[in-house]
């Protein structure tokens, strides 16, 4: 059973294509992220895609010029095919944290997962809250610094600093892969919250 899982956040067509600026930032990361995920799959790491589904009745869901992206019937809700493989699992969520009122925790526990690697967009929202939630639920948390995305680099840096201070290890992707291979990923992570 996989001991490690990767959780991708919000890498969906509707969300990525919000603006040219955002699309450029995302696609500057996606090829390397896809390669990273392929490597981890080959190491028996479970890949879980956290897919934001906006509810029309949710007044707080972000609308783009009045249009609500990533609804249940929007084709653009799909996760980028660049990072998806048949063996992956997709979990729908409606809020920032991938654990909030979803089956994610049960899926991870059923799979025997103890260590989670959190990637995706935005570093300071969904990545940060999912990392915190995972930490509170007793998982070891790791965030590869090149695998997270914000439109503003300062937002990513601030969030990575926060994660590193409170709840997870922030490492280069190459270190993450090496440690997964060695079985030493948990050694660099802070102890899970009791």
């Amino acid at each position: 059973m996989p001991k490690v899982a990767v959780l991708t956040n919000d890498l969906q067509y509707d969300l990525v294509n919000k603006s040219e600026e955002r699309r450029d930032v995302v696609y500057s990361v996606v090829p390397r992220l896809a390669e990273f995920l392929d490597t981890l799959r080959s190491l028996d790491v479970l890949v879980v895609h956290l897919q934001l589904i906006n509810r029309p009745e949710d007044p707080r869901a972000e609308r783009y010029d009045g249009w609500l992206p990533a609804t249940a019937d929007s084709p653009g809700r799909a996760v980028l095919t660049d990072i998806v493989a048949d063996v992956d699992v997709t979990v729908c969520k409606h809020q920032a944290s991938g654990f909030f009122e979803t089956d994610l925790d049960r899926i991870l526990r059923d799979a025997g997962v103890q260590d989670v690697i959190v990637v995706g967009m935005h570093t300071q929202i969904c990545v940060q809250t999912t990392a915190a939630d995972a930490y509170f639920r007793g998982y070891n948390v790791c965030v590869p610094q090149e695998g997270v995305i914000s439109e503003r680099p300062a937002d990513t840096q601030r969030a990575l600093d926060w994660i590193g201070s409170y709840c997870g290890a922030v490492l280069p992707m190459s270190d993450v892969v090496r440690r997964v291979k060695d079985g030493t990923l948990a050694e660099v992570m802070p102890a899970p919250a009791s």
Binding site: Q95, A96, F100, T129, T130
Partner: peptide, 9 residues
Amino acid sequence: REGLGFEKR
């Protein structure tokens, strides 16, 4: 409100 992960802690 926002699903931040702190609500049970």
